[in-house]
């Protein structure tokens, strides 16, 4: 019988199926992604409904205004004709949208050329822009890629953006770069560490959502031996949470932040962040002291 002959196949597939079972960590990551997706979907629908309503009101308002303007104009022209000579100025064509794929925003405004001694950096058509350590996000520097709706914010770091007409590739040389994508109503993030290379727009619309980025960042944190990098990562999470305290992923991010603090030996801050996370999301359950202890022990076991 065919099935008897196929038994080794079935057994091998069953074994592989068993080995492919998701861990709690996998489920947590997938749940976080799923919840963010649902929240973003609901938000997009609300925004679309509001936009529809606004468009209708605007159309009605404009039609009314145009009607009134037409009546007034006719009245004026009737009074002034026939002495008035009409002249119609040729309408100027609006300048085409700039073709650049990335722009650097500085505290003093948009810069148009690269200059290594601070401030003036590149407005890029196609080519490369390099951010060095003195261009800091806390001073207002960031790189925007308008056509992709991407913002790149350095946290005391060096990174390179190479842009073509359709893509931007970001290489992080030091520290951490936070990439924010604005896709309609959806905000998504990716946090890139030293040595990472990320391409946009590919990263923008697949896995860049905040929960996942933070989750991966926490994993990276736990495996990263460089103290400076760890501090930068925690700073990145804190900045993200502070900027978007009501984002659906913020409690989860706080939770990760708490674990990270505990692993760094900062038990007080760590447990405080864990408790805050619990207060904001009833799904985050568990004894915070035990979670903190486990994170610290894990870091200690890893020799850090």
């Amino acid at each position: 019988m065919a099935d008897d002959r196929d038994d080794p196949i079935r057994t091998a597939l069953d074994r592989a199926w068993h080995r492919a079972a998701p861990t709690d960590e996998d489920l947590a990551a997938m749940d976080a992604q799923f919840r963010s997706m649902l929240a973003a979907n609901a938000s997009t629908r609300r925004a679309a409904a509001n936009a529809r309503r606004t468009r209708v009101l605007l159309a009605v308002g404009l039609a009314a205004a145009a009607g009134v303007a037409l009546v007034i104009r006719r009245a004026v022209l009737d009074r002034q004709a026939p002495a008035m000579a009409h002249h119609t100025a040729p309408r100027e064509t609006a300048p085409a949208a700039p073709a650049w794929a990335a722009q650097v925003v500085s505290p003093g405004g948009r810069m148009d050329a690269r200059d290594d001694d601070g401030g003036r950096v590149a407005l890029v058509h196609e080519g490369t822009v390099e951010f060095s350590g003195h261009h800091r996000a806390d001073q207002g520097y960031r790189v925007r890629i308008p056509s992709l709706d991407v913002d790149l914010e350095p946290l005391g770091t060096r990174f390179v953006v190479e842009v073509t007409a359709t893509r931007a590739r970001v290489t992080v040389r030091e520290g951490v770069v936070q990439a924010t994508c604005h896709r309609g109503a959806r905000l998504s993030y990716a946090v890139l560490g030293a040595g990472d290379v990320a391409e946009f727009p590919a990263r923008c619309d697949d896995t860049g959502d905040a929960a996942l980025a933070l989750y991966r960042m926490a994993q990276r944190f736990e495996g990263d031996d460089r103290a400076a990098s760890r501090v930068s990562l925690v700073a990145a999470v804190e900045a993200l949470v502070a900027r978007h305290p009501t984002h659906p992923s913020a409690p989860h991010a706080r939770w990760m932040l708490g674990r990270a603090r505990c692993a760094m030996g900062d038990v007080g801050e760590g447990t405080r962040a864990l408790r805050e996370a619990q207060q904001r999301d009833a799904h985050l359950v568990g004894d915070v002291e035990a979670v903190c202890r486990a994170a610290a022990e894990r870091a200690h076991d890893a020799g850090r």
Partner: peptide
């Protein structure tokens, strides 16, 4: 280039 996924892989775990 090296994808972000690989770059951010956890160092431990299955």
């Amino acid at each position: 280039s090296r994808p972000l996924d690989e770059a951010l892989d956890a160092p431990t775990g299955p």
